[in-house]
Every structure is written in C-alpha cells, then in structure tokens.
C-alpha cells in the first residue's frame, strides 16, 4: 500500500506523530481467539524457561516424562494427570505476563490461561495453586467461560468446572 503522509489531514498526521507513544496491546477483540490458539501451541519450554534457569531444567525434565506428551500449553490443560509442578510454573509464568507492562500477551488471553491452569490443578490434582479467595476464583472462572472467543478445548475446561462446581481445596495447600 502506498503511504499517504503527503495527502493526509492534520488530524491524521497528529495521530501518526503519536504512534510511537501509543500504549496498550494492538490486538483487538477479533484477534483474541487466534492469539489464544497460537499461545496454546507454544512449547512450554519456550515460555517457562524465561522464568529462570532452574525452571527451565525442571520443565525439560517434566516434559520428557510426560505421557501423553506435554509439549505445549494445550497438552497441559488437556492432560489427565498433569504434573502439579508444571502447572505451578505455568501459573507463575502467566502471572508474570499479567503484571508486565509490555503487553506481550493480551491481558484477557493471559487471564483465561491463568484461570484455566488453576482450575486444572484443582480438578485433576486436587490442589490449590493460588492464594486468591474462593469468591474471586469463582468469579474468574465465570468470567473466563463468558468470553466468546474461547476455543472449544479451553471452554471445555471451564464447562467441566461449571457443570460440577469443584470443591475448592483450602487455602494454604500447594500455592505457588
């Protein structure tokens, strides 16, 4: 496309001048499902090794032991017996992303994965890996389920919990 700075109105030029200072994620509502699906297929070692060296080694060990395979976030969320340690590291990674100012992942996508990871730990490991209280946690699960851009496998994680409200393990157990 030919750039048209020369033909643009002053209003448009003012917006162009501010492009470098524009804050926030550039992905919009229409992109969220694509971003989520893409993120679900990012190798766990790729993301979690960014936490620290030890985490990287732990992830490599847990992934190599995985059966069925545990290559990516999607594998972890759908795994019948996911390693608790891997869920804790994943939650820690997502918490870091949510706190980051760089918006490396759209906040709604990071939040959905954050709640899904916590929920999988509750449903399949019977462990609570967060210090969030019950009310906040349930509100988070409900919010995630209402997002229209969820892919089916991720939605199924929340539907499973919604249909049969999980008994939340008490605070203080397994919190990462």
């Amino acid at each position: 496309m030919i750039r048209r700075v020369q033909d643009s109105s002053p209003d448009v030029l003012a917006k162009v001048m501010d492009l470098g200072a524009r804050e926030g994620n550039v992905w919009n509502e229409d992109d969220l499902q694509a971003v989520l699906v893409h993120q679900l297929h990012v190798p766990l070692s790729f993301d979690l090794s960014s936490l620290n060296e030890e985490a990287g080694r732990t992830v490599d060990r847990l992934i190599s032991d995985g059966n069925p395979p545990l290559r990516c976030h999607a594998d972890l969320l759908q795994h019948p017996n996911p390693p608790l340690e891997l869920l804790q590291l994943t939650k820690q990674f997502l918490k870091t992303v949510l706190k980051s100012r760089d918006d490396l992942l759209p906040r709604p996508v990071a939040a959905v994965l954050y709640y899904a990871t916590i929920l999988v730990a509750i449903m399949r490991c019977h462990e609570r890996i967060t210090s969030l209280d019950d009310k906040t946690l349930m509100a988070g699960f409900d919010w995630a389920l209402q997002q229209p851009w969820l892919d089916e496998p991720t939605r199924s994680v929340f539907v499973e919990a919604h249909g049969d409200r999980p008994t939340l393990p008490p605070l203080g157990r397994g919190q990462g």
Binding site: M1, R4, V5, V16, L19, R22, D31, A34, V35
Partner: peptide, 14 residues
C-alpha cells in the same frame, strides 16, 4: 498501526 491510522484500513488480522 500505520495503515489503519493513515488510510483507516482494517488492521491486518493476527
């Protein structure tokens, strides 16, 4: 960023 600002074009999908 640029084309949607300059041309009011739809942003290229993710």
């Amino acid at each position: 960023l640029l084309d949607p600002t300059l041309h009011e074009a739809e942003p290229i999908a993710y």
